[in-house]
Design a protein around this nucleic acid. Structure first.
Lengths: 344, 344
DNA sequence: AACTAAAATGAAAAGGGTATCATTAACTGA
DNA sequence: TCAGTTAATGATACCCTTTTCATTTTAGTT
């Protein structure tokens, strides 16, 4: 059964498409459509179960009422919670949301963005995986579609962003560990390390060490690939000399690696906080019910999602307007996973 | 700067739109377009950065190459992981994916589906929140759009589904607890309890009791609203008489409520498994690093996502074909959170 | 050279809305 | 009664691509 079109409706009512269109778009009053006509139209619409054709509408208006979200991985709860709030906000405003994951693959990111532009999205919210380069920046700027970065951003680009203050919170967390008497503090980074997030976290860690006159030592720094976590990570951790208590504290670069760390510690009978203190980026609910509870640097993804959605909405309605970037301040929770060290 | 259209391209090349369209849709050979013409077209397309207008295409072809995913809550890792795999599969096939969450609100579900149909999606994957009724079933059947249920399904409807065997696994888990000597086994259900998932789990629990000649007792059954978890749940748990060791084991209806339970137990100094044994539906990574590790009934959301995607793809390409429903068998992991009970 | 078959390309309609502009009908006031 | 408004509705172009069918060009045959 073919779908009922505006023309069908028009014929069966003997009312022009124009008038019906006005009624359906809520512009009846404004366009001086009589109450009687409006009533007849609405009745018939229901009767024939008329559903407007979105393609025809989009073709004519140039608006798709659809936006795209591109993140590293929708199955990462951090991004999922961002997406939840973005979708919520856009749904309220009559928009639909397309999503796709890059899995940190730059080519995939490029492909996804192209596809979304073809789809005629009215805007894109992107957590970029491609490292900053003038070429990529040019490519993104040329889209001529409102774009908002979340979680990660490009330095000095005109593309507005909503991110957490990773540098500052990393600095503060490291400082906290130092205040607890730790001097041998390790940092676990996640690849790719050239995203603004990880780069800022690493920088904050290093600067906090420097500020306390503690030299940065390569043996206290490790990088992991999240996709590789299935392989035992103890071997790599071993370089941190945890057994000999060489590193007495760890700042973990994100929540996933933290869980892997804890599992590894349990398998190898390394005790938190007796053998090593631990602070993790990205709070998880379970951190508070683990034994011991894990200290963390909490970033509210909901806040990022909300603000990014509102930012993009305002960009869509007035593209020329200058937009302020938003920086969210994380909250540092110190729990039993961190203990004082007196000697050494 | 206005976007380049096929007409622009046609004019600048002096080649008809028809021919260019053939080239762009990879039908050059088939339609006998000369290699020279094809080369010229492709060169110009790149030069002018031509991007086809999806609305015009959709209007003409009636296909949107877009599907919709509707789940209870995208920020629930279970659904997020399903979505991840669905999107992956559809991306491979040139489709885009719209998503939206119902938050278990039937009206929202209805609204979302209407919007998606307006958008002209080629298919929908739905985790229904509305309880089964002939009215709803009729409504969904009348969509004339391929539809696949995930996680939950309607009894005796013609709508194909991909779900876990909740009844059987609930039965087995309860049986396991009985084998461990437990007679006072509580079940924690999640509202809404009229979804196929929760109803099957409750039924499995009850039937396992019956099979062992253990009467079902209301005081060992509780229902929680996930949205209410912020409020302390101990009060409600108290009815299970945990203090007096009245209930010696709990089968928890899903992972979120399990985490809330554990937190509540910790606050109230109730020890697992000494005071109460625990098995949880829906495995989480953290279950294995909690103290003690939590027993669980694991359903692989990836499997559901994969299979649902493939099912919908085949429905889209041949709507008339009869489709088999898919039932996934969960895996039950018994860990230290369950202990033997000898007396009582 | 004349004709046929095959190869290559093009003209035009269709698809369903929206927006511009035009038209009709009803009503006002002198 | 008639010009001049205003209220209500309609005709039509347009958005851009795909597709059907038609036409032109080229190659091949006798």
């Amino acid at each position: 059964m073919k779908r009922v079109s505006l023309t069908d409706l028009s014929k069966s009512l003997n009312i022009s498409k124009t008038t019906i269109s006005f009624v359906l778009n809520g512009r009846a009053k404004e366009k001086g459509v009589s109450a009687e006509t409006e009533r007849r139209v609405l009745k018939k619409v229901k009767e024939l179960n008329y559903i407007p054709n979105n393609f025809a509408r989009g073709l004519r208006t140039g608006k798709s009422m659809t936006i795209g979200i591109v993140v590293a991985d929708i199955s990462n709860p951090f991004y999922a919670r961002i997406c939840r709030n973005i979708e919520n906000e856009f749904d309220k405003n009559g928009y639909n949301v397309l999503f796709s994951s890059t899995y940190e693959n730059p080519d995939k990111e490029k492909h996804i963005i192209n596809v979304m532009v073809e789809r005629g999205v009215d805007g894109i919210i992107l957590s970029p995986t491609r490292p900053y380069s003038s070429r990529v920046k040019k490519e993104l700027t040329q889209l001529e579609i409102p774009l908002v970065f979340i979680d990660r951003h490009y330095p000095n680009s005109d593309i507005p962003y909503v991110v957490a203050n990773n540098y500052q919170s990393s600095f503060e967390a490291t400082k906290k560990l130092i205040e607890f008497g730790h001097k041998h503090i390790a940092f676990i980074a996640i690849k790719p390390t050239n995203t603004s997030v990880m780069a800022d976290r690493i920088r904050g860690y290093k600067d906090a060490l420097k500020a306390a006159n503690i030299p940065f030592r390569k043996k206290f720094y490790a990088e992991f690939d999240l996709e590789d976590l299935s392989k035992p990570i103890y071997h790599k951790l071993d370089c941190l000399n945890l057994r000999e208590h060489s590193a007495t504290a760890i700042l973990s670069g994100n929540n996933k690696i933290t869980l892997a760390l804890i599992e590894c510690f349990q398998r190898n009978k390394i005790l938190i906080p007796n053998d090593v203190s631990l602070i993790s980026f990205d709070y998880l609910d379970v951190f508070s019910i683990l034994t011991p509870p894990i200290s963390s640097i909490q970033i509210h993804p909901e806040e990022i999602g909300d603000k990014a959605a509102k930012l993009l909405l305002s960009l869509i309605s007035s593209p020329q307007k200058f937009q302020e970037n938003l920086v969210i301040e994380p909250v540092i929770h110190i729990k039993e996973s961190v203990k004082y060290i007196l000697d050494k």
